[in-house]
Design a protein around this nucleic acid. Structure first.
Lengths: 138, 138
DNA sequence: TTACTTTGTATACCTTGTTGTATTAGTAAA
DNA sequence: TTTACTAATACAACAAGGTATACAAAGTAA
């Protein structure tokens, strides 16, 4: 059994309760609010930055890679994801700026730059996993 | 208290256990596998379609709108999200094709086309919520 | 000195997706 | 008949983002 199938299987076996929990929380809010289009627009605006940052190409791929490999260098990420240097450099900077990853330079010799997840980054990946595996299942 | 703050507060109060549950599941898998770069690459490839579909612009916004408004017409979505007709039309078609939403035409005057979430779409939104609120919090 | 590695940066091109504007089809109301 | 509304579609133009290619700094080894 491949890693993918195994991961998917375990995620699926627990997803129902996760969904039920969230749904309960959510419907409690909805019941007590009449949601106007304006509320909805505000709601979406407040989430927009996260949307844009997290869901652009490579962001989650990078975070997931870091989750599975702990600490990792620039070239290794590049090799695994087959991503352009420029693109990778930009994304890493952006993820670091927003507190998802740390960048540690080991001066020396040999020079080495290690990237790793912060706790925010780690939790973000963990929360993204059920979503990804659930939607890709069916 | 606005809807946004209230949602965020409730999500936050429960997010720790959700994360803990997922982490436990996840680390159980990791411990028993030595993950090679090839495994990782395969893993990411298998999720790529979901990445691309779900995380492109407007997809989650549309799903979230449907979640909050139940059944809704084309123009209403357009008005709420301020999205171009063409773009909205494309996205709705794509989401329908992949089983996230249903499209129901009421022929008789007046003509009306209703969009609503399938259970897959609904669960997808529910799973996306903690991720969005968590990452936008800090 | 020369060659090689790692970690990027610089430049310019190109693709993709999104938008604005206009248009169509069907129906109803004035 | 004209106007208005819903649900799209058509097409040109634009902007953002990603890519290829090349190159640079800093160090190591032969």
């Amino acid at each position: 059994m491949t890693l993918t199938t195994e991961l998917r299987k375990i995620v699926e076996s627990q997803i129902d309760q996760v969904i039920k929990g969230i749904e309960h929380t959510f419907s409690r809010i909805i019941e007590t609010h009449k949601i106007t289009p304006t509320d909805l627009k505000d709601e979406l605006d407040s989430l927009e930055e996260t949307f844009n940052l997290l869901f652009q190409k490579w962001s989650l791929e990078i975070l997931y890679t870091l989750q599975l490999k702990n600490s990792i260098g620039f070239s290794e990420i590049k090799k695994i994801l087959c991503v352009n240097s420029r693109t990778l450099s930009d994304k890493l900077k952006m993820l670091q700026k927003h507190g998802y990853i740390t960048r540690t330079v080991t001066v020396g010799p040999p020079l080495r730059v290690e990237y790793a997840l912060t706790s925010k980054g780690k939790n973000t990946v963990l929360l993204a996993l059920p979503l990804l595996y659930y939607s890709s299942a069916t």
